[in-house]
Computed example of a mutant assay.
Amino acid sequence: MAVFPASGTTPVSKFIPEIWASELLIPLHEELVLASPICVNNDYEGEISGPGDQVHINSLTRPTVVDYTRNADVNAQLLDTEDQILAIDHGKAFAFAVDDVDRIQSAGGELIFKATEESIQALRVAADAYVGAKMVAGALAANKKTFTVGTDDVFNALVDYGVILDNADVPLWKRFAVVKPEIKAAMLKHDRFVASSYGSAIPIQNGVIGSLAGFTIAVTPHLPSGVEMIVGSPAACTYGDNLVSLESFRHPTKFAHVVRGLHVAGAKVTRPEALIVASTA
């Protein structure tokens, strides 16, 4: 994980907004689960400049494949696209003040470092909850399933969900299942579970703990209420975010520095057939 701010600097006195924003986003993206590239695509992220933006997504309609006979003409089909809008409707801000005395006593900005870490976690929880709500709202009614909790029950549910995705022509590559900790416990007991970095010295990023039944398994306690598992492909949902504002300034009435930032994001389910939302029966 990136160290923020860089070791050996005094954060407030060497504040450069662009560098700070970049360094803050790196550990944030490493902590995301539902909003990470494991579960969503970031095809339109570079087009986000601020809250209230609307990004137009031109989804290509699949060309028709025709039979071919020798010496026959093949007529070119005009490509067709469907315009969808990615609304940047998620905005979260953080702000904290560090008293001059505390800053001096904290050996070069330790308080600012700790406060920034806490801000990252708060932004991550908010972003994952936001994407989860979008996924639940955008999933097809037919793809909202129930399952029972048990070692074989969870495995069998994943196998069945894989069939649903197969029949929807969803690519096998990069399929994911994000589960709550209670479901993770059942998965870890299954003899077909293949551990990733779980139990090793390698840090777990984006909640990934291993694989089961052809799915990359990630865990988070921040799934929407009543949902224990979200399964699918990153092709199903697009997500983009940006730290559009980050600044430091003197507190108007105290001997302190204020650091504050604004994080905005947008998410949209563009291929609902590639997403399954599951609850326990």
Rank of each mutant, 00 (worst) to 15 (best):
M1K: 07
M1T: 08
A2Y: 08
S7Q: 05
S7E: 10
G8I: 03
P11E: 09
P17K: 08
S22I: 05
L24F: 10
L24R: 08
L24Y: 05
I26N: 00
P27N: 01
P27G: 00
E30D: 15
E30K: 12
E31F: 01
L32K: 03
L34W: 02
I38C: 02
V40H: 02
N42T: 04
D43I: 14
I48P: 00
G50R: 10
P51F: 13
D53F: 12
H56C: 05
I57D: 07
I57T: 08
L60I: 14
T64Y: 04
V66H: 13
Y68G: 04
R70Q: 09
R70N: 11
D73G: 00
A76D: 12
Q84P: 02
A87W: 08
D89F: 11
D89C: 12
H90V: 05
A95E: 14
A95L: 11
V98N: 10
D100K: 11
D100F: 04
D102L: 04
R103F: 10
R103L: 13
R103N: 15
R103Y: 14
Q105F: 10
A107N: 15
L111R: 07
F113G: 05
K114I: 11
K114A: 11
K114E: 14
A115Y: 14
T116H: 12
E118S: 15
S119F: 01
S119Q: 10
S119C: 13
Q121I: 06
Q121F: 15
R124F: 00
A127W: 06
D128V: 01
A129S: 15
A129V: 02
Y130A: 13
K134S: 00
G138F: 04
A141R: 07
K144Q: 15
F147S: 01
T148G: 13
T151F: 02
D152L: 12
N156Y: 07
V159G: 08
D160V: 11
D169L: 14
V170C: 07
L172F: 13
L172I: 15
W173H: 13
W173Q: 14
K174F: 04
V178C: 03
V179H: 03
K180I: 13
P181M: 05
I183T: 12
K184A: 15
A185G: 07
A186M: 05
A186I: 09
M187F: 10
H190P: 01
H190D: 04
R192S: 09
V194W: 01
A195M: 11
A195Q: 13
S197R: 14
G199Q: 01
Q205D: 09
G207W: 01
I209N: 01
G210F: 01
A213W: 07
A213V: 07
T216N: 11
I217C: 03
V219S: 06
T220N: 06
S225W: 03
G226D: 09
E228M: 04
E228Y: 06
V231W: 01
V231P: 00
G232H: 08
S233C: 08
P234T: 03
A235L: 15
T238C: 14
Y239L: 12
L243K: 06
V244R: 10
V244Q: 09
A256Y: 01
H257P: 00
R260P: 02
L262R: 14
A265I: 08
P272I: 02
A274H: 07
V277Q: 04
T280P: 06
